[in-house]
Computed example of a mutant assay.
Amino acid sequence: MSAILEHANVTVTNPEATAKWMADVFGWHKRWSGASIHNGFSLHVGGADSYLALYAPPTTPKSPGNSYTTRGGLNHLAVTVTDIKATEAAVWAAGFTPTNHADYEPGQRFYFRDGDGIEYEVVQYDD
């Protein structure tokens, strides 16, 4: 038996703004948006086979503590890309700062945080 991750759901301040930078950086598109649980708003952004559900509650969400020391904390989301240099340029253009660059077996990676403080890992695997 095997399983494929279809989506993850994260709370953000502004789903539309988050989906915009994700379209610019990752080439993703808006799949759906509308009213959601607890009188909030959700937007699904991604590709044909997987997506992120971006949820905004009706009031401004609170800042989290350190995710690595919080039970159930979201430590980072990772995406694979085919051109890490172009993706890094797009991350800079979106106003985020790439950090923690590494060449490792089997590829390259860097991290960045978005305006909501969510950490993303960008990975390009060697062919």
Rank of each mutant, 00 (worst) to 15 (best):
Ala90Lys: 15
His29Ser: 08
Pro98His: 08
Ala35Met: 08
Phe41Ala: 08
Leu77Met: 11
Trp32Gln: 13
Arg71Cys: 02
Ser67His: 05
Thr18Val: 15
Ala94His: 02
Ala48Val: 07
Val12Tyr: 03
Ser50Cys: 13
Val79Met: 04
Ala89Phe: 07
Phe26Cys: 08
Pro15Ala: 10
Thr87Gly: 03
Leu74Val: 12
Ser33Glu: 15
Gly34Leu: 12
Tyr51Pro: 00
Ala86Ser: 13
Ala19Lys: 02
Ala48Asn: 10
Pro57Ile: 05
Pro58Cys: 08
Val45Phe: 03
Pro15Glu: 11
Ser63Met: 09
Asp49Gly: 09
Val81Arg: 08
Thr11His: 02
Gly27Val: 10
His7Trp: 08
Ala23Asn: 13
Asp24Gly: 13
Arg71Thr: 11
Thr69Leu: 10
Thr99Leu: 05
Ala23Phe: 02
Arg31Gly: 02
Val91Lys: 04
Val79Gln: 04
Phe26Tyr: 10
Ser63Trp: 00
Ala94Pro: 05
Trp21Ile: 10
Ala94Gly: 06
Ser42Leu: 05
Ala35Phe: 10
Ala94Phe: 06
Ala35His: 05
Gly72Phe: 02
Ala48Phe: 03
Ala35Gln: 12
Pro98Gln: 04
Thr69Met: 03
Phe41Thr: 11
Glu6Tyr: 02
Tyr104Gly: 01
Leu74Pro: 04
Ile84Ser: 12
Asp49Tyr: 11
Leu77Gly: 08
Gly73Ile: 03
Gly47Trp: 00
Val10Tyr: 09
Thr69His: 09
Thr97Arg: 01
Gly72Val: 07
His76Tyr: 14
Phe41Leu: 09
Ala90Val: 07
Ala86Met: 06
Asn39Ser: 13
Thr59Asp: 07
Ala90Trp: 05
Trp92Asp: 08
Ala89Lys: 15
Lys62Arg: 06
Ala35Asp: 14
Pro98Gly: 06
Trp28Ala: 14
Tyr55Leu: 08
Gly47Glu: 13
Ser36Asp: 15
Tyr68Ser: 01
Ala17Asp: 14
Met22Cys: 11
His101Lys: 11
Gly65Cys: 08
Tyr104Glu: 12
Asn9Arg: 15
Leu54Thr: 07
Thr69Phe: 02
Val45Leu: 01
Leu52Cys: 01
Val79Ala: 05
His76Gly: 06
Asp103Trp: 03
Ile84Val: 14
Phe96Thr: 07
Thr59Leu: 11
Gly73Asp: 04
Ala23Asp: 14
Ala102Arg: 15
Asn9Ser: 13
Thr13Leu: 09
Ala86Cys: 04
Ser33Val: 00
Trp32Phe: 14
Phe96Ile: 00
Ser50Arg: 11
Val12Ile: 08
Ala8Leu: 15
Trp28Pro: 00
Trp28Met: 11
Asn75Arg: 13
Ala48Thr: 12
Ala102Tyr: 10
Tyr68Asp: 02
Asp103Met: 10
Ala94Ser: 09
Ser33Met: 10
Ala19Tyr: 01
Ala17Pro: 06
His101Asn: 05
Gly65Glu: 10
Thr87Tyr: 06
Asn75Glu: 11
Ala19His: 08
Thr69Trp: 01
Thr59Val: 14
Ala19Trp: 06
Gly73Lys: 07
Ser36Arg: 02
Val79Asn: 01
